[in-house]
Design a protein around this nucleic acid. Structure first.
Lengths: 246, 246
DNA sequence: GAGGCCAACTTGTTCAGACAAGTTCCGAGT
DNA sequence: ACTCGGAACTTGTCTGAACAAGTTGGCCTC
């Protein structure tokens, strides 16, 4: 069973969803919520802290908390897994491995995956689609210790994340995403069925396990007419950062 | 003076920065830190919770906390303010208003800024540069109640955020950012000094005050060869979400 | 040497209380 | 009618304590 503060956070999220608390309205005071749920004020604070981090509600000392938005953010799992994301939207995810090969780790690979240079790492080029329409080109490099499990996956499997979890118990826990825009190259254009030089949204990411061990890094290119990304930030929670090109 | 837990969070951040705790190494236990700083365990937990949210450290029940990364995240102020961001990098920010006019709020404007349709809102087209080089085109729409203060700002002022704070005490507190890629149009290309159809990183955002009142919304287009965005996510903290085009 | 089990350690959850600091709103006084 | 001050309210900070739940490493056995 989940922790009490998570249950309360969920109940509040649902209450906001069903507009019991409308956008702009004020949430009950901590002490009221504590009494209502029969818990201490600290537990309520943990619950509302979660909603604050998600950007659902705003908080200022002295004033009642305000509902800022509703229907926020998918789970991390949905962000990580293309297939789970598609499923949550009622769309069908497809996937197809175009090329796959082992290469010795470059200096860049070894830095990102925390491996010794020269260790063989698995490069995979995968096309992903929604309802048959290709929308994403994934160029992924897997660390040597997970590569065998990746290799054994069917070339047309829709969900790699799912299969890796089933076969090895691997759970992705952290991710760093660097986002920019690039023009589609010849290969990009061909595989995504778009014109060359079309703008693509590029997401370069490194994913690690719960222990902080890097699993993979990837260069993902999205058709910008099909997919966009959304980030919610506040003074207390700024996951987003602007960077200059090196 | 800042809260004790913030001081401790800062000290830990600096310690990680100067590699006293290296990436992959383990942080001292909560009880040790509590004893070291002479505070209770709860206060230490508040401090490390902040670093966890920033993605600096990873946390699993039962195991010592692990340092995941270093040199993370600017402040929210730096993200919001182009000038502050540039300054933090030791670069000089420039700004120039190309066009500015009042227009009645469209349905879209009124929804995003929570105003009545037809209320006059201020449209501003601004070019921003780093060390003289144009890198960003900002098309911003300001709510009527802040527009007069914006209008009185010099056309070449480097920092609008700064001046708005000084003249009205306005502080930006929350922001929703939607990121995608677009091809440069004729006006974009001309003002940024790039070729037409070059890929641009587009960030559409709405910014609100601490009270949750929308102040402005903006369509920002970055030269993708000059600027990128970075988001750090985890199972506990996912500010990032993928979206399909409507 | 391999495997399994347990004890020590560490983080997660929750409580109850106290005070600090900021906001809101009403009422008194001008 | 307007402003100002203060009381009541609300969130922020911090303490100290207890138990739950997960991890780690070493010891013992086979």
């Amino acid at each position: 069973m989940p922790a009490r503060h998570e249950e309360i956070a969920d109940e509040l999220r649902r209450a906001i969803d069903r507009e019991e608390y409308t956008v702009g309205s004020r949430l009950p005071a901590e002490t009221e919520l504590a009494a209502h749920y029969g818990v201490s004020r600290g537990t309520v604070r943990q619950a509302v802290a979660a909603l604050t981090a998600e950007g659902l509600i705003g908080s200022r000392q002295g004033a009642r908390r305000v509902v800022l938005a509703s229907r926020r953010s998918q789970s991390f799992a949905e962000l990580r897994s293309f297939a789970q994301w598609a499923h949550a939207m009622g769309r069908e995810a497809t996937g197809h491995v175009v090329a796959q090969e082992y290469l010795p780790a470059t200096a860049q690979d070894s830095a990102r995956l925390q491996l010794r240079e020269g260790t063989p790492v698995l490069h995979v080029l995968r096309v992903r689609g929604l309802d048959g329409e290709p929308v994403l080109l994934e160029r992924t490099v897997y660390a040597d210790w997970i590569a065998p499990a990746v290799e054994s996956i069917d070339a047309d499997a829709p969900s790699v994340t799912q299969l890796l979890y089933e076969s090895t118990g691997l759970v992705f826990a952290y991710g760093e995403h660097v986002i920019d825009a690039v023009a589609a190259g010849a290969q990009d254009a061909e595989l995504l069925g778009i014109r060359r030089t079309s703008p693509l949204l590029r997401v370069r990411r490194v994913t690690t396990t719960r222990e902080g061990r890097p699993v993979e890094w990837s260069d993902d290119r999205y058709r910008s007419d099909a997919v966009s990304f959304s980030v919610h930030n506040s003074i207390d929670n700024n996951a987003l950062a602007r960077k200059t090109a090196e």
